[in-house]
Design a protein around this nucleic acid. Structure first.
Length: 467
RNA sequence: GGCGGGUUAGCCAAGCGGCAAGGCAAGGGUUUGCAAAACCCUCAUACGCCGGUUCAAAUCCGGCACCCGCCUCCA
């Protein structure tokens, strides 16, 4: 398996530090508002990555953090905490805000079919771990205390900038932000902050205060996964300053490499532009659900665009995704109800090729487009061959195994109301007497209820129209 | 200003030196009581523009144009 490493700017063969075990940390949501579809692009990417690593037989220890304190609205040093800003606006306390939006995040990730991570640690529950690292940094001379604040000294970490390319001597910090009077160097960032107005406060060796944003990921990743991670993921905007600062403080604290492979998902655009409320192209996950793009279709769109390529979300694309999804779901359904003649021997070479192509594609930095081509090749060939029940079962096992990665091919079983069942039965009765007019009328009536009926040599096959 | 990415058929999108994957849409067939689903066929002498290297370039090199992102809260 080769993955592109932001740190080295090239694809590298992936070898976890411990044989067979992957320690992966995913930058998760800041729970201060409804998650938008761009947020979930990065999360779906992390899920597909995790699933593929498992497909390849690795044990994945996956941790995704929930940021519920410290992430400021304006800039890294001043300004209001995102949670507190939301709290003020909604007239709730920040704990309620965090709880509410964290719950929504979890609900959506389940709807989108995410594999369960090992842990979803929350920043507010790891304050002691953060304080411990900050103390270590101060003791080692990488952090300094000014009044009740603690800052990280960027100058003490010469390789600062290795991830983002924003090297120290070219970084013009303070160019757009007013330099903070307490800082020795405008590029230094806060580890611990004192602000009497802040609603979330904890005791610390430096007095009551709250942690800086970057320190949470260092503390929580090390707690759950150890001092050196195999993989760290996030959105491309995390590269700088967030991940750059994580590296600086983590490596300064431990003296060990913090993470070996950094993977970043590029932004999702809407109509070719970055999502922004002012541009009117900002969609939360709930928004797209309400506009008829269901969880599976959204997952399909997010999972089948290459993570390292900007993705352009359009409603036309969403419709296309729904159709494609339906085709896969139909294929999968048919494999459990096959009546063809092709034996296993006929179908096996097709399956073997699809599997081989799929793996080769995914091994190459998750080349999802190529992988999908392999899947559609399988679909087309198997449909053409028309397998017998044993062959269909053989294909089904292979398809399901491949789909453990993308998790897009299985359709929920169709459920029909009593009313719908009655109509279906009535139509079957009409058909026995070749009453086509009544049959067509009932088909239309069912269609209006979202039930599509197909006639096959073995009778009717009703199914729900998909969203 | 610094850094990075992009420009391939109506739309989305692989390919990154050797005759242009795949999906959606569209048109024509097979099938069907009619449909649907499925399958078959058609659908880029062509890969932003101009030069160059090469037996051979969408793929390498140089230049130009346009688009997007990061550098500042943001996945």
């Amino acid at each position: 398996m080769k993955f592109y490493n932001t740190l080295t700017r090239q694809k590298e063969e992936f070898v976890p530090q411990e044989k067979g075990v992957v320690r992966m940390y995913n930058c998760g949501p800041t729970v201060y508002s409804y998650p938008h579809i761009g947020n979930f692009r990065a999360f779906v990417f992390a899920d597909v990555l995790r699933r593929y690593l498992e497909y390849r037989g690795l044990e994945v220890r996956q941790v995704m953090n929930i940021t519920d304190v410290g992430h400021l609205v304006a800039d890294a040093d001043e300004g209001e905490d995102k949670l507190e800003a939301a709290a003020r606006k909604e007239k709730k306390d920040p704990w309620q805000i965090a709880g509410y939006y964290a719950e929504i995040f979890h609900r959506i990730r389940k709807q989108l079919g995410f594999a369960e991570a090992m842990a979803f640690p929350r920043a507010t529950e790891h304050i002691p771990e953060m304080i411990a690292i900050i103390e270590k940094l101060v003791a080692r001379g990488h952090g300094y205390v000014v009044g009740n604040n603690v800052y990280f000294s960027v100058a003490s970490f010469p390789s600062y900038g290795k991830l983002s390319g924003n090297l120290l001597d070219t970084l013009e910090a303070g160019a757009r932000i007013e330099p903070h009077p307490d800082k020795k160097d405008p590029r230094d960032f806060a580890l611990w902050k004192h602000d009497p107005k802040h609603l979330m406060q904890w005791d610390s060796p430096w007095g009551r205060g709250f942690p800086g944003w970057h320190i949470e990921c260092s503390a929580m990743s090390m707690k759950y996964l150890g001092e050196t991670l195999d993989i760290h993921t996030g959105g491309e905007d995390n590269i700088f300053p967030h991940h750059e600062c994580e590296i600086a403080q983590s490596e300064s604290a431990t003296g060990k490499p913090f993470c070996r492979l950094w993977m970043h998902a590029r932004f999702l655009l809407v109509n070719g532009e970055k999502m922004a409320k002012s541009a009117g192209n900002f969609f939360t996950v709930e928004d797209v659900f309400q506009r008829g793009v269901g969880p599976q279709a959204l997952r399909y769109m997010l999972a089948t665009s290459h993570y390292r390529q900007q993705m352009n979300f359009t409603w036309e694309g969403a419709e296309s995704a729904k159709t494609s999804l339906e085709r896969l779901a139909e294929f999968r359904r048919r494999l459990s109800d096959a009546h063809g003649a092709a034996p296993v021997a006929a179908v096996k070479p097709v399956v073997d090729k699809a599997r081989k192509d799929f793996e080769a594609a995914m091994d190459d930095d998750l080349n999802i487009s190529e992988a999908l081509a392999a899947i559609y090749g399988l679909v087309r060939e198997v449909n053409r061959l028309d397998p017998d029940p044993a062959a269909a079962a053989f294909v089904r096992d292979a398809f399901d195994r491949i789909d453990t990665v993308l998790n897009i091919g299985t359709a929920p079983p169709d459920v029909f109301s009593d009313d719908e069942k009655n109509l279906i039965d009535a139509r079957a009765a009409a058909r026995t007497t070749k009453n086509w007019a009544e049959s067509d009328r009932l088909r239309k009536e069912l269609e209006a209820k979202g039930v599509l009926v197909e006639d096959t040599p073995r009778g009717q096959r009703p199914r729900r129209a998909r969203k």
